[in-house]
Design a protein around this nucleic acid. Sequence first.
DNA 1: TCAAAAGTGTTACTAATACACCCATGT
DNA 2: ACATGGGTGTATTAGTAACACTTTTGA
Lengths: 245, 245
Amino acid sequence: MNSERSPARFVLDGHELLPGISIDPVIFGFHEGQLKILLLEFRDTRLFALPGGFVHETENLDEAARRILADRTGLRDIYLEQFYVFGDRDRRDAETQRKIMVSTGTQLDDDHWLLRRFISIGYYALIDFTQATPTPDALSDSCTWYDLAELPPLIFDHSAIVRKALDTLQKNLDDKLVGLNLLPETFTMADLQRLYETILARPLQRTNFQRKMLSLGILERLEKKMSGGAHKAPYLYRFISPTTP
Amino acid sequence: MNSERSPARFVLDGHELLPGISIDPVIFGFHEGQLKILLLEFRDTRLFALPGGFVHETENLDEAARRILADRTGLRDIYLEQFYVFGDRDRRDAETQRKIMVSTGTQLDDDHWLLRRFISIGYYALIDFTQATPTPDALSDSCTWYDLAELPPLIFDHSAIVRKALDTLQKNLDDKLVGLNLLPETFTMADLQRLYETILARPLQRTNFQRKMLSLGILERLEKKMSGGAHKAPYLYRFISPTTP
DNA sequence: TCAAAAGTGTTACTAATACACCCATGT
DNA sequence: ACATGGGTGTATTAGTAACACTTTTGA
């Protein structure tokens, strides 16, 4: 066995980084009956990407993911789950990476660490659309919501990451309290059903859905809602917080 | 933003490696009614570990995992699944790592790359116990099967990795053809049930288990088995290979 | 008053569970 | 012949799915 010393450090904004590792969170939000995710658009390019980041030497992976999420959404205490690692050899292409950097006025040498191979750790996050304030990073001029059904083409393998995130979300839908994280404090049963239908991408039977949700014992029914909507006013519901029994 | 060049390379046995990334496979086998995993014991230490390895610059992650598995078991075409990434800041302690290297006559400088932070990608593998030939690596003097129920203490966070692997296996048991990978070519229904019971760590109803398995339409019944065993001879079964319908 | 949406009740069907029963075989 | 393990039948229950029915409300 032979080996070498490792004096090389990779530094960004004063933070030493784990080399060759990025975190790419798929941030789900729900608004007006549509499931959306946050995407960055890099300056002047028509290049769209997940709002990723790197891991500080001093952070656990989960902490890094939370920091990145807080930077893009302004929210702490987010529901967050690691779901897969993407590490194919050629998942990133250097040309795209170079274009991104050029667009912000940075030239990269051929052996710059940003052009080398990267492993990306996929996280998905569920957030309350109404609470988030999307914020671009230094390389981007926009950080905005895109309807999952009509995403623009994404750089690298980010489309595959999104698909896998959605798959995982669908698989775990029954176990996880998805609604708790994607909906505002109070909501109607129809809201909740639309959320489930959107995630599962198939219609559900209204009456049975209602019974099933109520049978879980995690919903509390409040007074009626009378908002502008025509026809019978539905109840409002709230999740029974596990801390307040 | 500031940054640095990255001339540093990490080389092992002539292969350039991804820095700071290891692969730690949990290799499951089933023998005599017991679920077992492969562990390495480092020379002269009483230190036990998962039979891990590193990723070559030229490999996809999955390819690296397969290579590592082939090195330890002699088997290619293994059922393999990535299940989680372990990246806590202090998951490894330098002292243990140093002990391991010392035991093989290697001294490590304080800034050696092996002593720096590592992210470990967890894979679990299912293999036919009877087909594998466990083989130690250069640092170890044994690579042997240990009953899951009585593992020795493991280094670093390897116990947590094993637990998470088992959790994932239990969760996916219904979807995955676990038996196909953990049992020999032919087996009895009792064998299959013992396997499931061991993985799930709870007894299953014999009669219903049989029906459920048969209803999946993935088992083919062969002639009887008359081996030494007393009492009624059970049928032998084989998985219907998906390629031969 | 009536159309649309919300909520409840009823029935049918399917899957999971428990257990009773019969069969085959080596001692 | 009989104890033991292997295989099948059947009743009970729980969970889904489908759909009819009632209630409420704004236009």
